[in-house]
Amino acid sequence: MDIDRLERFWIMISIAVLAALMLAIVYSVRGFGVEVPTDVGQVDPRTARETEPFNQPGVRQVGPGHYEVVMLAEAWRFEPSEVRVPAGSTVTFRLTSLDVIHGFRIPNTNVNLMVQPGQVVEATHRFNEPGTYHLFCHEYCGAGHHIMDGMLIVER
């Protein structure tokens, strides 16, 4: 098979660029700890409200400077819809859905989750600066999808 000299050069550049990008991803996961959600277990949406930890939606402190936010998503609200944590804390969000698939997006963070019935989903983020985050559902969940939102308030 004849391969033109320039084309051979192009092939090597393509492979090198793709390999470099892939290595950059692996480095950002290992080096900076920016990780996507993984499999953390299942829960039956019919009994989720009676099941730990979803029987107590809300914020609780689980360690020094570490908080856990347990939330339920259902059409078209989050429960609780307002959450307060102190600045400088690390927050683990743990959600499930009681009906259809929802999304959970906190703008300007790496918190970006699909919230599905039957599945528990988790993400952790550190909030350094005080401020208010207007979070929302970003997966189509029916006629009121666009009004499904919540507030995360990082207090001084």
Binding site: V36, N112, Q119
Partner: peptide, 30 residues
């Protein structure tokens, strides 16, 4: 990538192959 219920290892394997499928498109460009 943002789904629950799928281990990160499987997501990373599919990420790798997604980069591989860019290769025939790079050939196409040339």
């Amino acid at each position: 990538y943002t789904d629950p219920g799928v281990p990160t290892s499987w997501k990373l394997v599919h990420a790798f192959f997604t980069f591989v499928v860019f290769f025939p498109s790079a050939l196409t460009m040339f």
